[in-house]
């Protein structure tokens, strides 16, 4: 059974988003990291880049797969997880914590309603 924290919102493409004040933290779910296997590279956007809801903002790579990352919200990238450059395995080890990928600032909270709840995401992945 995959760990799907109740308090987060999800996309169908397996990203999660956590609201911390005026900042949204984005990563990929535990289910996604286990499907991908050992993550060896994360291609990150430049801070300041604009992202659109469901638009792609980066790439995660395992040895033999490449997957796009999709933003849960329309916003601006305020920070990226620089630790992933040297230790991309953080996404495997702690997908909801140290393995976060980008932070967003400046978004319409209304857009959150279009995202999946933990239950809906659970259903989505057939759990």
């Amino acid at each position: 059974m995959s760990n799907i924290p109740q308090e987060l919102k999800y996309t169908k493409e397996h990203e999660w988003v956590r609201i911390e004040g005026d900042t949204a933290v984005v990563g990929i779910t535990e289910h996604a990291q286990s499907e991908l296997g050992d993550i060896v590279f994360v291609e990150l956007p430049a801070p300041g880049a604009a992202v659109a809801q469901h638009g792609d903002f980066g790439v995660v790579e395992s040895v033999k797969t490449v997957s796009n990352l999709y933003s849960p919200l329309s916003s601006t990238v305020s920070a990226v997880n620089d630790a992933l450059a040297a230790t991309p395995e953080l996404v495997n080890k702690d997908p909801y914590g140290a393995g976060w990928i980008i932070k967003l600032q400046g978004f319409d909270p209304q857009e959150l309603t279009a995202l999946l709840s933990a239950e809906q995401y659970q259903k989505e992945i057939g759990g």
């Binding site: 050992d38 060896v40 590279f41 040895v63 033999k64 991309p88 395995e89």
Partner: peptide, 10 residues
């Protein structure tokens, strides 16, 4: 034996 392909990339 089985090769460590993750290491090869990282």
């Amino acid at each position: 034996g089985r090769l460590d392909e993750v290491k090869a990339v990282k």
